[in-house]
């Protein structure tokens, strides 16, 4: 499972920035308790990071016990179960929600109306910031410098052409474009406005519920490099994790089922700085579901001949 704490929960000092207003350090672990321990260690105020919140570290002691957890009202956003979602995934998540209802949870259908716009907005904001953050890799002071260059412009051009991969270059180009004069209002600024709307969606939601459950992805994991020629399709797989990132909310994705050896991700989203609820709910789910990851089947003929 993977955790993204609230934006500002963990210092970004020492982290190579990609998108400064979205970057957040979080653990990837085998179990919820492990993730919680790591989050405790990572979090806390840092005078070296202005965006780091002046709060004490998240404490494991704050995680509610199962009987307390059961009192949480669970919000299910209808936008996350639209026609674009793989039916198997939607079915799995829905059955888990039914089990939770049987466990005594209050299940509330909520709406996060700007979900559809969050993805485009996210890419505008993230790539704009990335284009600026990656400018320092220019061959002057830090990192690679292309050899045999004649002029300054040549040095910049070749260092960056040789040093960055295709996806990074694509992102820098898109981000630069979004910030360009004449396009700023249309792209970056609009992206920021959508971000505010997405955040407000969640604020309204948390007036009705304590925690939000969604699928982590609309589709099963794709093969490495499978969508490289169709970046939009590739970016689309982020559609459900991006809104909570835009709102800076803590979220956790755990594997709630396996189908044909591939995991189905369940996302647990809490309000700002409510990692306690996020971990409480996730631990409850982990215990309730007790999912065993399938062992990978090794291809024949690759076994150790001595074995």
């Amino acid at each position: 499972m993977g955790v993204r704490p609230t934006y500002g929960r963990v210092s970004r000092y020492g982290v190579v920035s990609f998108a400064s207003s979205l970057d957040q350090v979080g653990p990837i672990s085998r179990s919820v308790p492990d993730a919680a321990v790591l989050t405790h260690v990572l979090s806390g105020e840092d005078p070296m990071d202005s965006t780091c919140a002046p709060y004490p570290p998240f404490s494991n002691a704050d995680i509610p016990a199962p009987e307390e957890t059961r009192k949480m009202r669970i919000g299910i956003p209808r936008e996350y179960f639209s026609s674009g979602v793989d039916k198997v995934i939607a079915g799995e998540i829905s059955s888990i929600v039914r089990r939770l209802a049987k466990e005594g949870f209050d299940i509330i259908e909520i709406s996060l109306p700007h979900t559809d716009y969050a993805l485009e907005a996210y890419y505008l904001v993230a790539l704009a910031e990335a284009s600026s953050n990656l400018a320092r890799f220019d061959g002057v002071l830090y990192g690679k410098r292309a050899q045999g260059v004649k002029t300054l412009i040549d040095m910049y051009r070749r260092t960056r052409s040789e040093g960055f991969g295709n996806e990074v270059k694509r992102r820098i180009m898109l981000g630069t474009y979004a910030l360009s004069s004449g396009y700023y209002d249309e792209f970056y600024l609009k992206g920021m406005k959508v971000r505010t709307l997405v955040r407000q969606d969640f604020e309204h939601a948390y007036e009705q519920c304590d925690i939000v459950l969604t699928p982590s992805s609309p589709c099963f994991p794709f093969k490495l490099g499978e969508k490289i020629s169709d970046p939009y399709q590739m970016y689309l797989t982020d559609v459900f994790t991006v809104p909570s990132a835009m709102a800076g909310l803590p979220s956790l994705s755990l594997n709630c089922a396996y189908r044909k050896g591939l995991p189905v991700g369940l996302q647990v989203i809490a309000g700002p700085f409510r990692e306690d609820r996020m971990f409480g709910m996730s631990r409850f789910l982990e215990d309730m579901l007790s999912v065993e990851p399938p062992m990978p089947t090794l291809p024949a003929g690759k076994e150790n001949k001595d074995g």
């Binding site: 000092y13 920035s17 005078p47 990071d49 965006t51 320092r136 002071l141 830090y142």
Partner: peptide
């Protein structure tokens, strides 16, 4: 002030 990756400004 050298702008190294990972560093952040504080006013």
């Amino acid at each position: 002030c050298l702008g190294l990756p990972g560093s952040l400004p504080v006013l």
